[in-house]
Every structure is written in structure tokens, then in C-alpha cells.
Design a protein around this nucleic acid. Structure first.
Lengths: 258, 258
DNA sequence: CATTGTGAAACAATTCACAGCC
DNA sequence: GGCTGTGAATTGTTTCACAATG
């Protein structure tokens, strides 16, 4: 993660481990699904299965938030949804700008889970003047020239970069200069940012390469342990990737604004 | 499983840490950029800066691969590119299928870095019969019915799921049944897969929620340490790696051929 | 003598296992 | 009896610091 770490004497009394923070959204999603099915309570075992982690980890994670469960019973779904939302800061409104409206930018703009959780697409921005005014996901695309004004007027603090790699640093600099302090970068580039600005990246090609590594290893083992019985049996929950327990990265290229 | 490829020339014992594997693609990208600029050698310090990590970590990472550097000099760029590529399995061809050709699927299909590194889009698949035959990124979309045949005929072992959440598990099951053993999942769902199948996920809303958490914390600290240097002060693009560990799990992208 | 490679130390995350409570 | 919450043990990762070396 990218938090500047110069002086930070252990954040508040609330020192939630980064690995835990990365899993909270996962729990929240599972809880939301339960909530929609009007399930009142859930055990750590059940919730862990739904989120794809093991129950000990889940309980440990929750223990950093407080004691929100009831021994012998489990957790109150609605209450937990609220607590996690609050902890993640989702009880407030986060206006977001998406820069680079190619296929990827459009996909992001159309992404539902976006709007649903406190995030609001404040603006779609593209460098192509031909895109200006064109609606994507019901929102008219605006030209890059408007970037600073939009950020300041709407108090945007989160920016999403979905431009080609070549434009990313420049866009990043403008976002930061205008006041954005958190950036989600889909361009396959390392962004340089000042202290205090958080950057997370999503990079498709990195994810594929990691998969290739493991795939190769599987092939090698297979050849080595040649003819061994195929161990395909019990179902395993996926492990998340790094970054967020999912970490990952994936760089998806915005197919350039034509 | 398709290609049996016993391959273990490396003198190192098996077991490169997962965290290291996740960073190799990053180093590779930075090295590729250097290679294109015909830079012959690079020090751990320089390369680390380009990849956005610190040099001690980089050296430790490389130490798991073997001793490929020269004391007092640095690393030979071309040689390292080759060694890392080999370690990641990128010296072989990896056919990939992308299922779900919406905006996201199209963005992925158009992604250049895809084809560049051993990955080849073997097929684009969508459930909408209306899409069939329509070319995306120069490749005609095929109907879901063809999925099994394509995977078997092309020996595909890596699948990318870019469908809506509701279809993901079903698509996943079919991919796995047909022989896919590595999946990159863009749908916001936890996938259940049998033992031996790798899943990595890329989830936009999780990334945003993590950013929101840190953003909220910044706001809190600001209020607490009131009056302290406004986060909007020294805002110049710096090459500082100070706040630089970007990425979810500590993966950082580097320059890439646009 | 600049720079790698690596033990050892420090730190972080995960898992175990069980006391405590409903 | 069932399930949470958490210290303690374990495993994994990062950082330090310096001896080894081209």
C-alpha cells in the first residue's frame, strides 16, 4: 500500500492491520448478501465460508474492530454491516472522478457496485474533445480541461486513472495538484506521488504473469511426480491475491479514447 | 496440465516466496524498459527505484532466483530479463480465453501488454448470440457453446472471467471442467474451485473501499493534528520513493511500452 | 571501493487452541 | 453446547547491516 509512513506513531488506538483492512470489503459484501436475504445472524464459520477465508482469521479480523459478536450465537448481520461500513468510511459520500474513458473507463463507469457503496461518480474525463458531451453510463464525458475545476468544486479526493500508460503520470500530477489524495491506477506504470498520497494499482498483466508462474510450476510437478493420482477432490476456497486479499493488480488498458 | 514441461535448471531450491513472485513482473517491466533503451547494466538501487520498491527487498528477491549480479557492478539487463522471464514461465506460449465481452472484456482483449509477454488471446467468448462473429480487437467473438471445444483444442489453461457476477461461478465451473487450471476473476464474487486450481481476483470496489479507509483516516488525523502542514503543500512531482509502495500487495508497476 | 548477497533481527500475518461467555 | 475472542505459537516478509568480491 502506499501510505506515506514518515511520522506515524501507530495510528490511533485503532491499529487495524493492513491485511485486515483489505479483507473488510470482502466480509461486507458477504454480509450484504445475507442482509438481502434477511438472514439475521451468522456464525464466523458460515461468514468465513461465504467470504472465502477461514474462520479463525475472520474472528481475529473482527477482534480488531471490537467485540461485535455473541458467544454461542454468532454475529448480528445488520449490526456488522453497519460497523464495517463505518470503519471503512463508507457511511460518507465519496465523489470519484474517472479519467480516461475508453473501454475500461466505460466499464468502470457502468460498474454497479461502484455507486452502491458510498462512491459516486462525480465526473468522467477524457482528453479526446470528440468524447465531450457524449454520455457514458448516463453521465456526460467532460474534457480534461475541466479536471481541476471539477475536483475543487466537488471536493473530490479519489481519482481513478484508466488512461494509456503514457498519459498516467501526467494525469496523476494534475489530480494531485488539484487536491486528490487517493488514486486507483489501472495504467501499467509506477506513479510518483508526494508523501501523503495513496496509490493502489490494478495491473492485469502482472496478475497473468503470477498465474503463469504457478501454472508452470504445476506442469513441472506433474511431470516430476509423473503419473501420480490426480488430487482433484475437495473444494478449496480461493485465496486472494495480494492486494487486497485479492490483491492484485491488473492493468487494463483503456483502449484509448480513439 | 496440457504441456508437460519439467524444467528445473535453476540451482535454487524450489520455493520462491509468494511476495517475491508478485514482484517479479514489476522488475521485468522495468528491465524491459531499460532494455529498450539499450541500458546494459543496472544497480539494485536504480532498478528498485524504477520498480518502486527498496533495494534491499529487490536484492533479497533476486537472491531467491540465484546469483545473477556482479558485485561492484550491478545486474546485466538482458540476462536478468531472460532469467525472470524463464522463472515466470513467460518463455512459453500461454493461450488465454476471455469470457464475457462487455466493456471490460473488450478492454482486456484490446490490451497490448497482453500479447506482448507470452500470452495469446485464444478466444473471446460471450453468452449473447448477437455478439457471435462480431470482431473485438480483431478477434471474432464466439458463443459460450464453443467454450469446451476451444479450451480442449487449444490446450488453454488460463481463463479470464469478465462476466457479470451472477454468471461467474457457472462459467468458472465450465472452464475448470474443460481443463482450465488458472483463473483471473474480474467478477465481484468468491469463486469455488477444486483443489489445484488457482484463482486470482481483481476487484475494483474492494480497491476503492481500501482507499476510502485510508482517506478517512487521513481526514481524521488532519483534524486531530489540526493546523499541521496542510496536505496540499509541497506538491511537486518528486521521484521520491518515500510514499512509494504502491499497490495492494506491494506490487508496483513500472514503465511499459505504451 | 561500489555493489551484491545474505545471515540475523525486526516486524507482520496467520493459525492454533482453549478459556470465557451466552 | 456452541461459538466468540484472544493470547501464544508459528509462519511469512521486510529491513538491517556488513562481509564477500569482482
Amino acid at each position: 500500500m502506499a501510505t506515506g509512513r514518515a511520522h506515524r506513531p501507530a495510528t490511533r488506538s485503532r491499529g487495524i492491520p493492513e491485511a485486515t483492512v483489505a479483507r473488510l470489503p470482502l466480509y461486507l459484501r458477504a454480509l450484504t448478501a445475507l442482509s438481502e436475504r434477511s438472514v439475521p445472524t451468522v456464525s464466523s464459520e458460515e461468514l468465513a465460508a461465504a467470504a472465502g477465508v477461514n474462520s479463525a482469521k475472520l474472528r481475529k479480523d473482527f477482534s480488531y474492530l471490537g467485540s461485535y459478536g455473541t458467544r454461542g450465537v454468532g454475529y448480528d448481520v445488520e449490526y456488522l454491516v453497519y460497523q464495517i461500513s463505518r470503519e471503512l468510511g463508507l457511511t460518507q459520500d465519496w465523489p470519484v472522478v474517472i479519467v480516461g474513458i475508453g473501454n475500461l473507463g466505460a466499464a468502470l463507469a457502468n460498474y454497479g457496485g461502484f455507486a452502491s457503496r458510498g462512491f459516486r461518480v462525480a465526473a468522467l474525463i477524457d482528453a479526446d474533445p470528440g468524447m465531450a458531451g457524449k454520455p457514458v453510463a448516463g453521465i456526460p464525458v467532460q474534457h480534461t480541461d475541466e479536471l481541476e475545476k471539477i475536483i475543487q468544486d466537488d471536493g473530490v479526493s479519489i481519482g481513478v486513472i484508466a488512461t494509456p500508460a503514457g498519459a498516467a503520470q501526467q494525469v496523476c500530477d494534475r489530480l494531485v495538484a488539484a487536491g486528490v489524495t487517493s488514486i486507483l491506477n489501472f495504467a501499467p506504470t509506477v506513479l510518483n506521488v508526494p508523501e501523503g498520497v495513496d496509490v493502489r494499482k490494478v495491473d492485469l498483466s502482472i496478475e497473468l504473469q503470477i498465474l503463469a508462474f504457478h501454472e508452470q510450476r504445476k506442469a513441472g510437478e506433474e511431470a516430476a511426480a509423473d503419473g501420480a493420482a490426480p488430487p482433484v477432490a475437495a473444494r478449496k476456497q480461493q485465496r486472494s491475491t495480494g492486494s487486497a486479499d485479492q490483491g492484485p493488480d491488473g492493468d487494463v488498458p483503456a483502449v484509448m479514447p480513439a
